[in-house]
């Protein structure tokens, strides 16, 4: 087995006297989709915010290519190759696809920050990068608000990859979408997986989606890892049970019928 691209070791995160993460470890490999699963409040978003440099871990170490790293802020993390697609997508729906794609990293000519935007070039890069993950946009100057949810996900993913993401973090990319759009996003994830050089961390509450694309799983519950494994060794029932924080589905079903 190749060395992991990114390794988390005993990550602890406390907010005041609330422990959101209590010693979480996890390996993520290039070319793999790693599903990070768990119930509401398990600490998934907190964990990826630590990876993205939004939060600092209270204890524990992150290794990138085997080297310990510390992401003081989101910029440091993204420079190191961590690309995060947040739950709220981090897009401005009132401005154009291109402006969103390049925000903060515009192609310009002239002195920063008053350099002149190279709009034509940025438009063509946007179009190309979107096409690479399977979305053809006719007009990159159209407002993002006119795009479908799946296309917005694709935009955020294409942007992260274009700007050098080696670890792509997707926080519930399918949660707000209809069935067809969900499949579009899964296809996009598959295309990224096929490239082979990018490690994807996928957070989802949908076990079917996880099973469709994931190579490896980590299950969180109340801030701790309660299970992990490779796709081939996990049965659907196990996944469902671990996702619910270890509760027995049978028990839940009994409780449900008891109400009737």
């Amino acid at each position: 087995m190749a060395d992991p691209l990114i390794r988390l070791e005993n990550i602890v995160k406390r907010f005041g006297n609330f422990t959101a993460l209590n010693g979480v470890s996890m390996d993520v490999h290039a070319g793999e989709v790693h599903a990070l699963l768990g119930d509401n409040g398990a600490g998934k978003s907190t964990l990826i915010k630590i990876l993205a440099g939004v939060h600092q871990p209270t204890e524990g170490t992150i290794y990138l290519d085997g080297q310990p790293v510390s992401f003081r802020n989101p910029l440091v993390a993204s420079d190191a190759g961590i690309g995060t697609v947040y739950q709220d997508l981090a897009l401005n729906s009132l401005t154009s696809v291109t402006r969103n794609f390049f925000v903060g990293r515009e192609i310009t000519r002239g002195p920063r920050p008053f350099g002149i935007l190279q709009t034509a070039k940025m438009n063509s890069v946007t179009k190309q990068e979107m096409a690479k993950i399977g979305i053809n946009i006719a007009d990159p100057e159209q407002a993002v608000g006119t795009m479908s949810g799946g296309q917005r996900q694709a935009l955020a993913i294409a942007r992260a990859i274009h700007f050098g993401a080696r670890v792509l973090i997707l926080d519930e990319p399918t949660s707000a979408l209809g069935q067809k759009q969900q499949l579009e996003v899964l296809k996009t994830i598959k295309r990224v997986q096929k490239r082979g050089d990018i490690a994807v961390i996928l957070i989802t509450h949908n076990e079917i989606h996880a099973q469709l694309v994931a190579d490896r799983y980590t299950f969180l519950s109340l801030g701790q890892v309660i299970g992990e494994g490779v796709a081939d060794n996990l049965a659907g029932g196990d996944i469902r049970q671990l996702m619910a924080g270890g509760a027995q589905m049978a028990d839940l079903e009994e409780e449900l019928t008891a109400i009737n």
């Binding site: 939004v54 981090a90 401005n92 990293r105 002149i116």
Partner: peptide, 27 residues
């Protein structure tokens, strides 16, 4: 000119449109 043609113009739109997003992207 600044607003429609320069980098900082894009930052101004981004800041007002979705501040968290803008910051996450290094604005």
């Amino acid at each position: 000119f600044v607003l429609s043609r320069t980098q900082v113009g894009n930052w101004i739109y981004a800041t007002g449109g979705n501040e968290e997003a803008a910051r996450a992207n290094g604005v």
